[in-house]
Design a protein around this nucleic acid. Structure first.
Lengths: 170, 170, 170
DNA sequence: AACGTTCTAGAATATTCGTAA
DNA sequence: ATTACGAATATTCTAGAACGT
């Protein structure tokens, strides 16, 4: 776990957002942790946009801030207030931040990419020491992981169909 | 859907850059058109970065400005001064700007490691110990990934049960 | 390998950069070690380019200096200031500099057979490079896999909601 | 060959805008 | 109206490539 967090560099947005919430912990009235420390609440979007955002980012738009939150998997927690949550964004647990991943493109194109893969056999001629052996194994493992995820990609498709039917038929 | 070039909206960067050069036409000494009007010269990168850039963009970095110029196909015209040219960026011919196209980044389906697999590019020279460390961490990462996928495997099983019940009960 | 690193002659760029930081330690606030001595900060790129660079190199371009830093594996440490770090570039430990290696250019395909004859003793080094390359790719692949799995994690969340609704509404 | 300087491009994150669910 | 997402542009950091020494 700790080794994982070393490989992945923490996105500036995450550390800044954490700082931003932490800093306002006492002065409270603009942004703060929620009651359980499982998320944060922007109490005054106007003041937040005008005074807090520009100190951390290159803009003053609340909507841009929200777009970033969504990009990193945060969800709006309540229709009644600007509260956002992420499983790995918790009061007092800054170390969890490195488990938050930025979302990329949809994996729906995944299978095509799998088909496109071809092996390059160049390294076969070279003498193999332990590390080369390890790398080969890692590559195979990754291949396996990819195919499994591709499977879930298809699963997702069929699930979406089923669920949409369900929603429509209510 | 009449004319493509008219439909194509002018990139903010281009109009801003044009404005920026035009505006400084008289006050001159920071940035101006070149002698023939076929390009522009930044005479003082320091003042340009500090005073001009922030009035048009969200940063003060000369390098970021240059990156944008290259993205839109501008070329540095002389090794001796910061002069940039583009065939469609000319003094008094603002209408030509709409012919300048942004260079598209490669469609990122699964780009990075696919392309990396094909080329034998230069690698950082790290000592064997570090490499061993990296391999260890990679192995741990794979373990982690495997367990996560296993979790979704179980998830899928229970989902299948639930969904089959649903389908059968309709 | 340790004996090799001692034989390896220190690149001029590295010793010059070290000198440059050391020299400015007391004098002024243009460039200095960071707080922990684990890197250095260029406080004023303008003055640095104009006054410091030409005393050590043949140019006055901050970007060229940065290009060299990257060539030798330095990383920018903070988005907020021009701080660069390298594991082997530390205050008071000049001897570590010899462990810093320049990243090699990609050997062109053409003269490869020419270089092949002089390869007898450096075969291990080639293997090392290829392995490093593979490690890089593996890291990227893992990153991709992580984000994919994150996607399915979110998928699961929404599915759970839907399904719980379904169960409750029956 | 190895290193240095310059110019351009790759790749990742950030910001904006529109729109689908 | 609300919420989240796709996609285009913008900004940042690093690397490729060409050329000269």
């Amino acid at each position: 776990m700790t080794s994982l967090s070393k490989l992945r560099s923490l996105a500036p947005f995450l550390s800044k957002t954490y700082d931003l919430v932490e800093e306002s912990r006492d002065s409270n009235d603009v942004v703060s942790w929620n009651e359980e420390g499982s998320g944060f609440v922007v109490w005054s979007p106007e003041e937040f946009s005008r005074f807090v955002l520009p100190r951390y980012f290159k803009h003053c738009n609340f909507s841009s801030f929200i777009r970033q939150l969504n990009t990193y998997g945060f969800k709006k927690a309540s229709p009644d207030r600007w509260e956002f949550r992420h499983e790995k964004f918790q009061k007092g647990k800054r170390c969890l931040l490195s488990d938050i991943t930025r979302r990329r493109c949809k994996p729906s194109v995944f299978p095509s990419f799998l088909r496109a893969r071809e092996k390059k056999s160049s390294a076969a001629e070279i003498n193999e020491n332990e590390m080369l052996e390890q790398n080969k194994m890692l590559q195979k493992e990754n291949e396996e992981l990819r195919s499994q995820i591709a499977y879930y990609g298809e699963l997702e498709t069929s699930l979406q169909k089923l669920l949409s039917q369900y929603v429509c038929s209510r």
